[in-house]
């Protein structure tokens, strides 16, 4: 009986806090993405005219994000019937966007004008990461080459 009460409590706490955290995070991401619209980040290696580039440097941004108890429970149910796991989709979406934003913040602190050749990498971390069928939390890294362009080009 005790176990059931704790379970319901965890689900409830997870639902409330998880929803609040996700909403806040999305609002924050949208504001910051608008701020960095003038710093294009592209996944190709070259731009049309390489002579415009003044200097280049590696930049990266990373974030470790965890899912709440309620959504993990929902995902567990989904494992039975199959189909889209919406809660994991939004989690991955916002962690990738957050990683890109942090990379852009690093790039803009060194006054870069553009980021080339963006790569993503995902790594499962935490207690549950190595157990089968379980994602504890994971890290997303985004890295690329920040370049400064010659003024006036």
């Amino acid at each position: 009986m005790d176990a059931l009460i704790y379970f319901i409590l965890f689900i409830f706490v997870g639902y409330i806090s998880g929803t609040i955290i996700e909403k806040k995070h999305y609002l924050d991401i949208e504001v910051r993405e608008k701020k960095y619209l003038n710093l294009p980040a592209i996944s190709s290696k070259n731009i049309e005219d390489e002579s415009r580039i003044l200097s280049a440097n590696l930049v990266s941004g990373s974030v470790v994000i965890s899912l709440d108890y309620f959504k993990r429970f929902l995902a567990g149910l989904r494992n039975v019937v199959g189909g889209r796991i919406h809660s994991y989709e939004t989690l991955l979406d916002r962690s990738r966007r957050e990683a890109v934003l942090r990379m852009k913040e690093n790039a803009s602190s060194m006054n870069a004008d553009m980021i080339l050749n963006i790569r993503f990498q995902t790594l499962g971390v935490g207690q549950k990461a190595n157990k089968k069928g379980n994602i504890g939390c994971f890290e997303v890294v985004a890295y690329g080459t920040a370049v400064k362009l010659k003024p006036g080009t």
Partner: peptide, 26 residues
């Protein structure tokens, strides 16, 4: 970092300790 992580596994959100750890390692 792991204690904080198990708490965050309940409520969700960013694990700043892990982020820092992995950034340093990288």
């Amino acid at each position: 970092a792991d204690l904080a992580a198990s708490l965050k596994n309940l409520v969700g959100g960013e694990l700043k300790g892990y982020t820092k750890l992995l950034e340093d390692a990288r």
